[in-house]
Amino acid sequence: MDEGAGMFGHGHYGREENMEAMSDPLPPFHRHPIAPPDDAPWRITAASCVYENPWTRVIEEHLDSAQGEKGLYAYFAPVDCAVVVPVLGKGAGAHVHLVRQWRQAYRQYTWELPCGRLDAGETPLQAGQRELAEECGLHGGSWEVLGQWLHSDARVAGTSHCFVVRNPQTLARPPEKDRSEKDLQSHAVGLDQLWRMLDDGSICQVTTVAALLRLRLYMLDEVT
């Protein structure tokens, strides 16, 4: 097994995990609880993890159709993540905490909600509470599920679990940020400015956009 060093960790290439006639070869950290239906057009005959690091895997599947056709399908299988909408105050003074950080894949800084992967053994809520503390220095408050959605329906298999938390408090001693997030900055943004940033494209990260649109559609009257 060859190892490839990443900027903040090591990746592993070519680990064979071939499994005959698998119904669900996804890694356990995000395996879907529902088995494929009987009328699924493809049967998985073998699957391999061709690359992995602490954040994601690349899965390659060999497929057979009911008509005897063979196929090959590859996709990213990241760890599930928790997304948090921290709302402080109410009415004209309400604001939401956003984070601004560098995204190497896009060669730019982006505005996002606090978000991060689930560590081993964590529930989505526990991960959200930890990420809020690490990225914004906030804790406590009143938590509610805002929704969950798939990362992508084609090339990325994983789920974002989103929460809204009202009136969290500032930690006296926030936990130290991971070295990959040393440049991360937390900013409190008023709702009027938040909607402008969403509408003019200043906020363009898809998970953040989805969470804020859901907040605006279904819960705006509760935070204003």
Rank of each mutant, 00 (worst) to 15 (best):
E144G: 08
I203H: 12
M1K: 01
D200F: 14
S65V: 00
M219E: 13
V189R: 04
C136S: 14
T123P: 09
E222N: 08
D183T: 00
R43E: 15
G116Q: 11
P168H: 06
P28D: 15
G89A: 07
Q193N: 12
I59F: 03
Y109V: 01
M7T: 09
K70W: 05
S160M: 10
L171K: 04
R214H: 12
R179W: 13
A172P: 09
R166G: 08
L198W: 04
L88D: 15
R57Y: 05
G201C: 07
E131Q: 13
H12F: 03
C49E: 15
L184F: 11
G201Q: 11
Q205C: 05
V99D: 13
D80E: 15
V189C: 07
H187C: 04
V50A: 02
S186H: 10
L138M: 06
C204I: 00
D38E: 13
E122Q: 12
V156N: 12
Q67T: 08
V164P: 08
E135I: 00
E60I: 00
L88W: 11
H161I: 04
D24G: 02
P78S: 08
Q108G: 12
Q104Y: 10
L26N: 09
W143E: 13
V83F: 02
V96K: 04
M19R: 14
L150T: 10
P86C: 05
T224Q: 14
E3R: 02
D38L: 01
Q193Y: 08
L212H: 05
T45F: 03
